[in-house]
Amino acid sequence: MHLPLLSLPTLAAVASAARFTLHIPANPLVNPASLPPSTHATLQASGPPLTARLTRSNSFVFTNVSAGSYFATIHCRDYAFEPLRIDVSIEEAVEGSGDKKEVVRAWQTFLGNEWENKGESRGEGGNGVLVEARPVGEKRFYQERQGFSPLSFLKNPMILMALFSMVLIFGMPYLMDNMDPETKAEFEEMQKKSPLSSGAANPAQQLQNFDLASWMAGKTDSNPASRGQSPAPQSKRKG
């Protein structure tokens, strides 16, 4: 990977000013060559931020950065990038040698946390160090329209319940017809035993015709078939 930074001239060299490069590595999320040209990085500390635009080699070149602790952000239309903390300091390369050099250190940083709370290192070194700028996700601007789809309609539990009961109502007679005689007999036996089917053949009708008044009066009818019949036939029978 060639560094455009190394070839960059500084027409006026300023003492104790670091230069470094934020580089977007090749990653599975986005092809860095497809990023829009408005993509840029800012270094914020105090006053107006330093800005670097995206170069052809997918990097942002900062020159003349004075010592300090910077909050680096990459602004891109299509992708979000992780925020970085970049510290530039002037340190003696060897203790006591008096030979001072710029040192650049970069970490992940977490917004909404203390500034001292640093994450993984993203690059460290002297002048011209390469700092990794990683994309974290694509920006999705649009909302999906909730159109009508038959599948979502079927997912509705009410519809599912209705469909199930439909299957039972229409499917049961067919099932009964298709049973072999032995199973059918067995099934009917079971139905007879079940408490619902005691007495009348149709429990629903039985329930509908339930004679509340006579039941409350404690009448124990020996002829359950006549229960719930309209009074007229009864009187007829009496008469």
Binding site: L11, A12, L54, T55
Partner: peptide, 12 residues
């Protein structure tokens, strides 16, 4: 595509 190839600035 409008990306930077090289840049340089002159002070003052």
């Amino acid at each position: 595509d409008g990306r930077i190839v090289w840049e340089t600035s002159v002070d003052g």
